[in-house]
Design a binder for these strands. Structure first.
Lengths: 297, 297
DNA sequence: ATCCGATGATCAGTCTTTCTTACCACAAGG
DNA sequence: CCTTGTGGTAAGAAAGACTGATCATCGGAT
């Protein structure tokens, strides 16, 4: 029963009033004058009440005067929405929620994010960090759109884009017997006090696995772990990216005999698509890391 | 550059989400399923970003989720406007500004207005009263849409619909020598103390005109005039409708020799059209007075 | 395993809407 | 009187929307 108003004819009415005539309005609208006339007449019929006086001039009826500000209001709302959506699509506005594993968050993301906001100054980014499993759950649950993490289990719910390899090495204090070695094999670690950490599972399935069984400690927290290493209590294995460079007394010695690598990359929902802003982030991260080769290949 | 959104496809999107599928939405919208599909696809192309996931189910993309409440909002605004305009046209809302000559305002309008609001309970009426010239100026200036007045000068700017005749008579106190007469001719007034008033110009151009020249008073205010009449200071002439019935001591004696009548009717802008509410008022007044024959024919 | 019912996508044809081109009637001003 | 402006009208072309039939895919039930 209610008439369905289309936006365009309302615009015509405004133009006619603003320009003071059908001809001028048609010119401004890049339409012909009959098109304007007919659209207005159609609108009037739909409303059941004329908007313009019949006689010659383009003068509003009282009803037309009543309608005018309301038309203007609706068009304003429409344009505001249109502009807003357009900004989203054009990545001139929007928000990306993402998560990353701590090593990535602290070593890669600062540079990436500062470059990103240079490229997309109007986008906003939220980043949280946590274990690889934590990141995976956030992405799977839709709480973040993108995760930067290492993959250890394929999942058809999620899709993973590998971006770089990160090789595992041994971390010890600079006065440790192994500290001066350029590289190590797993045999060299036998008999050492090995501290397990969250990344130790990378060694599972390799020749080095038996070493894990002997380890007396399992420290997941990075602060605690480095404290123990600095105290010289033992050694550990870490991916190169997770090695805390800021501790002067710690050394990273690549483990070459069982060459263990973790694969870092972007995790995103498998079927679902991303918001325009997240699409921009995904493409940007992939492009950045592809061209720069951040870590060892 | 900005996409022009049409209301209907937005409605489709809402229906799809609410009903949980294209088929169900199509059913609710009284459309076929392909129509819904195509309209949505067209909208997506226009926005440059999909709203629904591609795979089978009708699941919103993140962008779709972002859009949904905004679509809903715009549609709400549209419907509100549509409903409002429709109410105006259907006379279920609106406002009439009108003016009337005092006699009409006090004797006719109370009944008319109370009947009117019975018929159109949702319309609002503003009524102001003033001299015939004042009413004419209000209508001509567009400050009111309708005037109920007596016509004394044709005007091509305004159009007048005659509704009733109002005959002029002599008004005097009940102890006046003329008070018991059933009717009068102008000769009977010779030598009387005649008080002019705003309606006296009706006598101009008749045999009674010379009487006006002799009159010592010219009182335009009705309160003052009746006070003088009640005090027995003199007599006056008034249209029947303007005769203040509520004064028990005053008498109205029809003037028959020069039968003087004023024509009362509705004054409205000539070219301009009326608001729906005013149209209703105009039609209602004409209809009411046509059927009831309020005053002397 | 396969059948069946449901989903949404696709295509061709038709119908409706909307625009343009060209013309008309009318009024104001030189 | 003619020119130039106004807006309105008619016929045809282009664009868009809707339908009906058909298709590919997925899931649950047999």
């Amino acid at each position: 029963m209610l008439p369905e108003l289309k936006i365009q004819p309302l615009r015509y009415v405004l133009a006619i009033v603003d320009e003071g005539g059908f001809h001028a309005a048609a010119r401004q609208l890049h339409r012909t004058q009959p098109a304007v006339s007919m659209a207005v007449r159609e609108l009037e019929q739909r409303l059941g009440e004329p908007l313009f006086e019949k006689g010659g001039k383009a003068a509003l009826t009282p009803f037309g005067r009543y309608c005018l500000p309301r038309f203007r209001e609706l068009i304003t709302q429409h344009d505001r929405l249109s502009r807003e959506l357009w900004a989203q699509v054009q990545k001139q506005a929007g928000h990306v929620d993402m998560a990353a594993v701590p090593s990535v968050a602290s070593r890669l993301m600062p540079r990436l994010l500062s470059d990103f906001i240079l490229r997309y100054p109007d986008l906003r980014v939220s980043l949280q960090d946590g274990s690889a499993d934590f990141v995976r759950r956030l992405v799977a649950g839709g709480e973040v759109e993108l995760g930067f993490t290492s993959l250890w289990r394929e999942d058809d719910e999620l899709s993973f884009t590998p971006l770089m390899h990160d090789d595992v090495g041994v971390v010890c204090r600079d006065d440790h017997p192994l500290a001066e070695r350029a590289e190590l094999g797993w045999e060299a670690l036998q008999g050492q006090v090995l501290i397990r950490n969250g990344t130790s599972r990378l060694l599972e399935g390799t020749e080095a696995e038996p070493l894990l069984a002997e380890s007396a400690f399992d420290i997941s927290n990075m602060i605690s772990l480095t404290a123990m290493l600095v105290a010289g209590i033992g050694i550990t294995t870490l991916p190169r990216l997770a090695f805390p460079q800021e501790y002067a007394r710690l050394r990273f010695i690549p483990l070459v005999d069982p060459l263990v690598e973790r694969e870092l990359g972007l995790l995103r929902p498998g079927q679902r698509s991303l918001s325009p802003a997240a699409q921009a982030m995904e493409a940007f991260v992939i492009e950045s890391l592809r061209s720069e080769a951040f870590v060892t290949p």
